[in-house]
Amino acid sequence: MNQATATPTDSDQPIPNVDLSTKLGRLALPNPIMVASGTFGYAREMQEVVDVSKLGGVLPKTITAEPRVGNAPWRTVETTGGLLNAIGLDNDGVDAFCEHHLPYLVTLNTPIVVSVAGRTEDDFVSLAQLVGQLGVAAVELNLSCPNVSGGIDFGTNASSCHDVVAAARKACPVPILAKLTPNVTRIAEIAKAAQEGGADAVCLINTVLAMAVDWKKRKPILGNGMGGLSGPAIKPIALRCVHQVASAVDIPIIGIGGIANIDDVMQFLVTGASAVQIGTANYYDPTLSTRLVDQLPAALAEINASSVSDVIRTLQV
């Protein structure tokens, strides 16, 4: 809304009459354009940057039971077409989140999906149980942060993935989404385990484990050594993962990974995603997410679709 002289939106053209709503199991969204956890702060930071109420859903930064100070700098490094990060789940902890951020978030008139992470199954379950009772639309289990020890095991081992999802589902009254890592041999197997555990949807992908090196100092650039790669560089990997998972599970998929324009959004929907999350692009094009909502009707009309659901999983292979 503060886009002074920016790329034209479609607002001055007749808006095709299309149904943008999308359904992910028990979770219904007004449109498929969400913003990814860790790329939108706690939404307050963005409140005058975009009209948050236009979004299909907002995921605040992942919360953990205890406050975490995060990793030492450097925390991000740019790479060709991408961004490597090792933030380390810097967050104020669930108590501060519930006291200071959640009361604001639930007034935003957009579905709030709270991303949670823990070291143990019990951590995930108690967080999901707690925030699930506080008026949020869904809980996303971050089973895939590459920058902290512990959490990633749930995303790389099918049986632990199944168990943590099943336990969280049992404890949490709202839909459970499982966010998966691409850093596995067969992501479809992990997605199947999440489905069997009762996940309402799977979100993929989290960042790709990667590294940057300063050869003159003979040291990794990131303070944490390794980190997670995001941005346009990983979009083909994400599309491949969505395709493989769509071929293996029936539950809905939320596509994430390098989405930077409306063509990217449409590619994910056609390939198998019922919604998408905009991530790194929020950093370098802060008003992108709501512009995509504006651009979606015309893109759907271009292939004679009258609704988002008309195009989901329509890839012909």
Partner: peptide, 27 residues
């Protein structure tokens, strides 16, 4: 001047150690 990715507070890259009232520091 710390390395920033977004400039608007959403990426948590550009942290510096800032002293707190309790005597500790926080990023």
């Amino acid at each position: 001047e710390t390395p920033m990715a977004c400039g608007i507070g959403i990426c948590f890259s550009c942290v510096a150690k800032v002293k707190q009232a309790d005597g500790n520091w926080d990023y």
